[in-house]
C-alpha cells in the first residue's frame, strides 16, 4: 500500500514570457524524504523550486501538497508549510538577526511556539545567537546562509526547499551546513528538496535524486546508484 506523497508534481510546464523553462516535469516526494535535484546552470532547477514555493506562476500541469492543490497567493504558501531558502539567501539586510528570524515565524500566531523554535534555531546555529542584535547585512556569507535556514525553520515547515545552499561558501562551512541539513531532516522529520550544482555534495547528502537538463528530468533514482552511474559521473561529477 503506497503512502500518499507529501508533494506531487504532474506534467509541470513553466514559461518566462515566451520562453519555456520547464518542459513537463513530474515528481513525487514522500514525507520525511531528503531529495536532491542536480543539473547544470540554467537547467530550470531554481524555477522548479520557485514554482513550488509560489514565487513563480506555472502555466500547465498540477502541483498538489498533502493531496490539495497549492494556494492561489504567494503569501499563503508559508502557512501551508512550504518554505523556500532562496538562492542568494535574500536575508533582510535592514533587520537584525533576531527580527529576521521573527519574520520567518510571521505565520506562527502562538508566542510560546515562536520562543520554542527560536531556541531550536539557536541550538542548531549558536553563531546566530551571538549575532542576535546585529543587522542581517553585516553577517558573513556563511552566517547569512545559517540565518536563511534558521528563518525557514521558524515557520516550522513540512517541506523545506534549499536553492543552491553551497553557493559562495567556503568548503569547511559547506560541510558544516550540509550536516545541519541532515540534522534538521532527521530531528524534525522535515522533508527537504536540495537544488545543487555541486552534484557530489548533493548526492552524498540526499537519499534520492533527480537529474535535470534543459527543463526536464533525464534521470532519477537512489543517490548512491546515481553516484556510480557512468553517465552521471561524466556529466556532473567530472569523472572521465
Amino acid at each position: 500500500m503506497a503512502e500518499s506523497p507529501l508533494l506531487a508534481v504532474k506534467d509541470l510546464e513553466v514559461f518566462y514570457g515566451g520562453i519555456q523553462a520547464i518542459h513537463g516535469i513530474s515528481l513525487e516526494i514522500k514525507k520525511g524524504e531528503m531529495v536532491a535535484v542536480i543539473g547544470a546552470n540554467g537547467a530550470g532547477k531554481s524555477t522548479l523550486l520557485n514554482t513550488i514555493a509560489g514565487d513563480k506562476s506555472y502555466q500547465k500541469g498540477s502541483i498538489t501538497f498533502e493531496g490539495e492543490p497549492l494556494p492561489g497567493r504567494a503569501y499563503q504558501f508559508a502557512e501551508k508549510g512550504i518554505c523556500l531558502v532562496p538562492e542568494g539567501r535574500r536575508i533582510f539586510v535592514n533587520l537584525t538577526v533576531y527580527d529576521n528570524l521573527l519574520v520567518g515565524a510571521y505565520t506562527v500566531r502562538k508566542k510560546e511556539k515562536i520562543k520554542e523554535r527560536l531556541e531550536e534555531v539557536y541550538d542548531l546555529f549558536p553563531r546566530l545567537k551571538e549575532r542576535e542584535k546585529q543587522m542581517g547585512g553585516t553577517l558573513s556569507g556563511g552566517e547569512q546562509q545559517m540565518l536563511a535556514v534558521g528563518r525557514a525553520m521558524m515557520a516550522g515547515p513540512k517541506l523545506m526547499m534549499l536553492d543552491e545552499p553551497s553557493m559562495g561558501l567556503a568548503p569547511v562551512i559547506i560541510d558544516e551546513m550540509f550536516d545541519k541539513f541532515k540534522k534538521i531532516n532527521s530531528k524534525y522529520g522535515t522533508t527537504m528538496i536540495i537544488v545543487e550544482q555541486n552534484a557530489q555534495l548533493a548526492l552524498d547528502t540526499a537519499n534520492r535524486a533527480y537529474v535535470m537538463s534543459v527543463g526536464k528530468f533525464i534521470m532519477e533514482g537512489d543517490s548512491q546508484e546515481l553516484i556510480h552511474d557512468p553517465k552521471v559521473q561524466e556529466a556532473y561529477l567530472g569523472f572521465k
Binding site: 514565487d55 497567493r73 523556500l84 539586510v93 533587520l95 519574520v103 510571521y106
Partner: peptide, 24 residues
C-alpha cells in the same frame, strides 16, 4: 507589532516578504 515587522521586512524586499507569509 507583527504588521510593523511585516512592513519593515517588505521595505527590503516584497517578494521575499511574501515567501515568509507576509501579505503585501
Amino acid at each position: 507589532t507583527r504588521v510593523g515587522l511585516g512592513i519593515r521586512a517588505s521595505a527590503f524586499d516584497t517578494r521575499t516578504a511574501a515567501l515568509m507569509g507576509i501579505n503585501v
